[in-house]
Amino acid sequence: MTSEFSGQDAELVAWRKQKRAELLAWRASFSGEDRHRANEMVLDRVYWLLRSNRTRVAGFYWPFRGEIDVLPLMHRFLAEGGTAALPVVVGRGQPLSFRHWEPGFPMAAGVFGIPYPAESRVVVPDTLVVPVVGYDDCCYRLGYGGGYYDRTLAVAEPKPLRIGIGFASLRLDTIVPQRYDVPMDYIVTEAETIRRAVGDDADVSLA
């Protein structure tokens, strides 16, 4: 993909930083009944994907800074016999690790104070549910800028199903993907589910 930023890394970093700040400010202001309704619609769509792809071990996240609250989905997934996991930052520049989580497990505070299971076993998710700060129609995700998920997905074996989730208003025309950006298999919002076609740049929007 060509763009005005090609070969201009410093400008791209500055542009992403600006967009990230704008989107995070909007997400923090989105509240009330509209947020609650959108959250439920996203979780219903993700639940359908977990079921249809026969997910057994799902990596979720602990909601932070106005992200989609996946805790109700985690409880629903557990109630139907699935195994839930939460990410752990092992170290700067390192891929994430995922630890088994259930209600009542002892938790510790990780990076930015985000809780993670303190003593549980490491598991390998076959599906990852990943929050987005922004996204585009090619299923590329704009995150917080740390690169943790990109590094994790780049080395993951076997490759997990990748589901990025967020609100429809976080959509960008493009995040200007670079060689290190790993696309999601799906982007799920309250408005639609976008599927990235395997081996093709074309994407399909599902009802």
Rank of each mutant, 00 (worst) to 15 (best):
S205E: 11
F98N: 09
V111R: 15
S52R: 04
Y180S: 02
A118D: 07
K19Y: 05
I165H: 01
E157V: 03
G7K: 04
D203T: 12
Y140V: 02
L206C: 14
Y140H: 04
E4Y: 07
S52F: 07
P115Y: 07
F30P: 12
H75E: 11
E119D: 15
V188S: 04
V88Y: 04
V182Y: 02
S31M: 05
R151D: 01
M74R: 00
A108R: 13
A109G: 12
E33W: 02
A14E: 09
V182D: 01
M74A: 04
G7I: 06
L153I: 03
V198D: 14
V123W: 04
Q18I: 08
F105P: 06
L170D: 01
P106R: 10
Q94A: 14
V155L: 02
D150M: 12
T152K: 01
V123Y: 00
E67R: 05
S3T: 03
L206T: 15
P131F: 02
P87G: 10
E40C: 08
M107E: 02
I68A: 07
I175E: 03
C138K: 13
G82Q: 07
S205F: 03
V176Y: 13
G145W: 04
A14T: 05
E157W: 00
G143T: 05
E190C: 03
A58W: 05
S29L: 14
D69V: 00
V88A: 03
F60L: 11
P160I: 06
V132N: 06
D34E: 14
